[in-house]
Structures are given as C-alpha cells and as structure tokens.
Design a protein around this nucleic acid. Structure first.
Length: 115
RNA sequence: CGAGUAGGUCGGGCAGUCGCGUGCGUCUAUGCCGAAAGGUGACGUAUGAGGAAAGUCCGAGCUCCAUAGGGCAAGGAUAACGGGUAACGCCCGCCGAAGGCGACUUCAGGAAAAGUGCAACAGAGAUAUACCGCCUCGAAAGCUAUUGCUUUGGUGUCAAGUUGAUGAAUUGUCGCUUGCUUUUUUCAAACCCGGCGAAAGCCUGCUUUCGCCGGAAGAGGAGGAGCAGCGACAAACAUGAGGCUUGUCGCUUUAGCGGCAAGUUGAUAAAUUGUCGCUUGCUCCGACGAGGUAAGGGUGGAAACGUGAGGUAAGAGCUCACGGGUGAGCAGGGAACUGUCUCAUCCUGCAAACUCUAUCCGGAGCAACACCGUAUAGGAGGACAUCAAGGCUGGCCCGGCUGUCCUCGGGUAGGUGGCUAAAGCGCCGUGGCAACACGUCGCGUAGAUAGAUGACUGUCCAAGACAGAACUCGGCUUACAGACCUGCUCGCAAC
RNA sequence: GCGCUGUUAGCUCAGCUGGAUAGAGCGUGUGGCUACGGACCACAAGGUCGGGGAUUCGAAUUCUCCACAGCGCG
C-alpha cells in the first residue's frame, strides 16, 4: 500500500464519525472525508461484537486485502474508516470486496472508468 | 473379533503469483520529516502463532516501593504419609474409604475424647428427656372376719385451633407389602449339651484347642391365609357427607366390626353463620404424693453399640459370652497404616458451622521500571533592570508580585531500552518402581506497539475442530473435527 | 494487566445466618359487578431458582468448575 497510511489517533476517528459522509450495508459501514494531501488514510474498526480474537483478525485482514487490491481505482486525498458489522464474520472474501466497491461508489470515491 | 480402560504423538500436505512484520547484507535514498531524541526507501536473503497462545485459578523469575533483624495479633491459603521440584494448592509412589466382574477410577482425606453451636417436620425424647408405661414406699377411699384385694379422677351453653364438593364414607378392579393376627414349612449366627476323631500339655487320665456328626434352644429372615392400612383407576353420591381423634354401648376366638344431630342465603362458583367431635389452655369441685428405672411405645437420616443369658422391686454394659467402633500399649513397617495380641472405653451426625492444631504468605505490577526530553505552564538559586508607564493587593502611602538572562532539579505529550538464550528443546546412556536427577552430542527457533500469517489458482486425502503471542517460565482448569501408536482388562471363537 | 458485582414467574424485585408446598407487586386468563367498558371483588395458570459437580438426612441458600451480563482502577 504505497500511497496509503493508517489512521491511529482517536481524534481522527472521532472527526470522521462526526463530519464524514457515511454509507452502510449489512456487512460494512464506511465513513469518508476529503483531506488536503495527495495520499489516502484508512482506518479499520472491528468491535468485540463481531467475534473472538481470531475471527476479528480474519475480518480485518480481508478488509485490508480488499482495499489493497483495489487501491489504484480510488481517488486520492481521502480519509476513510471502514467498520465491520456482525455479518462480516460469516461472509466470504469476495462478498466483502463487492460490498466495499459498492459503498465507495455510492460515496463517489472511485475514479471514473474510461469506457 | 467385540467391548472397555490408562497413557502418548499429530492438529491438513505440496506447488505457483501478489502482499505484510522482523533480523542480516548491499546501495552516494548522504535525500526527506522532526526543535531534539529519533524515524523513514529499494533490492537480495533468512525467518514468522498454540496444544491449549484462552480462563486468570495457583506458584516463581524480573522491576520498583516499604522494611535493621525477629516476634505477636488480624486476614488469607493449604491439610493422610513419603518423595520430586527453583517453587507450588502441581506431579509421582503408597495408605485408607467409596464405586466397578476386572484393567482402573474418584475423594477439601487433620481434630467431634478441648470447648461452643446446629439437627426443621414427625416423635414421649435429638445429646439428652421422664409424657405414657413398669416398680418401690407412704397416704386416702371402697370391699373383706383377717392376711389381703381393687381404685386414686371428673366437670363446664368458657376461649382458641383443625380436615372435607380440588369429591369423603361406600362398592368394584389392580398394585404395594407398611402394621397386626393365625398357621405351616424352610433357612439360620453366637452361646449350651452329647458322641467320635486329631493335636498339645502334664499330675497318665484328665484338661485345653481344633474338626466332624447329632440334639436342644430358636433372636431374626423367607413363604401361605386372613384383617387393617396406603396408592392408582372407575362407579355411584347435588334426591348430597362425612373423616381424623376421643368416649360409650353392643357383637366377636384374635386382628377387628357396627351404632350414636339438624339447618340458612345463593342458579353455579366464591362467601357467611350454626352444630358435633377432638387437642391445648383456663375455671370450679375432688379422694395423691415422694422416689427408682431407661426393657417397651407407630416417628425419624440418626434414639445412650448389636444379640443372647445372668441379675433385679422393676430395670440398666450392672455383669458375662460372642461381634463391632474408639483410645493407649505391644509387634511389624521409613511413615501414613496394619493386627485371630493386651488393657481401657466418655461409642449419633455436621468442622464446604464457629473453633483448635500444623505449615506458608510484605505490597504492586512491563501501562512495572530505566534513559533522552521540545514549546507552553510551573519550582529553586543567582545576575541585571526596578528611571518611567500599566495591572493586581490596598481607603492612601510604603512594600510585595508581574520583566530579561543564566544555572539546577523534577517531569507531561513523544521517543528509545526493557524484548527474548530460557529453571530452553531433542536423541542416547546411567541411577530411580515412578515423578525426576546427572552426563555426552546436536539444535539453539516470532518479538509487534492501532498491534505482522492474508488473498487467488492448481492438486492429494481422512475434507480440516477448538481457536490468534503482547515481559517470561512451571502447573491447573476449560474448549476441541478427527487420525495414529503403546500397555492392560473382560467376553467369545479357533489352535 | 489487576479487581468487583449480578443471574429467582412474561416484567420489576424479596427470600440467601441451610428445613422441604419458593413469595410480593404489575401483567395474563376465568368468573362476578355493569346496559357496555374502566375501576373494584374472588379464583387460577405461569418457576430446570443461569448450567455441571460436590458437602449434608436435606441446597435457591455452603464449596467448586463453567456460561452470560454489567461495572471499576491503571
């Protein structure tokens, strides 16, 4: 993930929840906001409601992978928090990838595809 | 072959592409970010979650705080005995108890004879009782010529409580076998008697012990018949009711059986009143007090150890025989413990009730702790300024604070260390029943800090369960698809 | 990392220093009352006392191992 760093401070998360645009599906929830730099920042949240430690780890890794593979198709200069919901523990990797693309498209974060 | 029991090993494999953490090496990235400490890239190479990483139930290392050293109290933990270990509440062996045909499994398994407490209901009585009963002594009443024998309690328009339409009593069927009666048969411990045989002892014909046979006695157990009781179901009862308990009368060979009042409101249900009987208390009258006893008395988890005999006024481990428990001695064993021994005997259970005995425990935790440490705020000391102006304190004046620079110490955000070589793992050998210890050789194997293992494709099979390191070890507990190996036990079959 | 509390009827709570049929209020059902409904009166149903094991004659209560829920400190 060359052009991306992770969000670490609690303040950044708070700001996104409060002021970011959101989009929700049964599997994921995404909060996003433009920043003024040329790189993206991403934060992944998986709460204890989702499952025990190994389940949470698996969900987080799948979300990371789904973002990494599709990184080039995102716009630049975005802060984004991806929250895993309870269903995310049950579905496959492909489902998560599909949901991620669907939600980001709704928010208008994807680059226009040249037809 | 089947069933079981104890222990151990493994916990998807292989290949390819992309991606992540860490170590090492190379590269003018000698660049960039930051005030500093420090952080940051590309390529190559090596390596990268568990048997429980979990729960946090114990024990240690390590770090800081407290503490001269030791003891007592409080609080907590552990609990047969011996050993292992750095230590433990863990492990091994062994003893005892319980369960299992057995291999084997389970046990908070010290003290109830130091003391306190608890044991509902039922029951006369619950750790000691005296209600009934039995017996003695005296008293009174009645009968009798006397010795003597019999009896020693009733009563009330008093008060309170109690079951029944949620179906009583009755009848029928089935079941239980709780109590009692009777009868017959059978089994039967110890004690007692007789006979035969054997052994031992001496006083040489007796004693003791053991075995066999028979007799007597017959606690107790089993069976049959009957009576009562209890439970279930059904019938009948609304044209309807009593039961339990107690008393009295009658009948019967026994257990036992039978008889002994009536209404109101209301459709029903609910409800109210009355009556009868019983128990306890109270009132009145009257002709009974003192003591002994723990055999018997339907209960209960448990009733002064059980059975029999003697003994006694009646009785009692009061005495004796047999059998059990506990304590002390003796013998065996390293100890718990064991015993055809001796003596004593205060003989219910509960200590996961208080308590007593023995042993152990200072507290907190890697977000510990150490180092570096900016701006701002703030502490201590020193130097300069305090001419002037402003602000605060103050009614006013004086005084103090508020300024700049330097030094010192603490220390927030942040960063680095702590951080992985450790009471380490594996093979073999020696000692030991074992846990384990010692020795040789080899390996030495994650270290993040918003927290690294994922995705896709192919292939094989038994089709992949429980589950993710966060300072580190030793245990325990809990979760877990399956696969494999070893020892042992029981049953069946064949040789 | 270190600690604490709770779980009882559909809901909210008693009972916890062992003693047998586990209670109360609200709610639910049935009947009465009323022309009808509410209120009121009476009755009833509804409980693996979070789960397993142990101690005891006897466990909701004591001990222990789990599960779930909630809270605190750094």
């Amino acid at each position: 993930m060359k052009n991306t760093v992770s969000i670490k401070r609690n303040n950044d998360f708070r700001a996104l929840y409060k002021r970011g645009k959101s989009s929700v599906s049964p599997v994921l929830a995404i909060y996003a906001r433009k920043n003024k730099t040329t790189s993206n920042r991403i934060g992944i949240t998986v709460s204890t409601k989702v499952g025990k430690a190994h389940v949470r780890n698996r969900v987080r890794r799948r979300i990371r992978e789904a973002y990494r593979i599709n990184e080039t198709s995102f716009k630049k200069g975005i802060d984004m928090v991806i929250v895993a919901r309870v269903r995310a523990a049950e579905v496959t990797f492909h489902e998560i990838e599909k949901n991620l693309l669907l939600l980001t498209e709704k928010l208008g974060l994807l680059l226009e595809v040249q037809e």
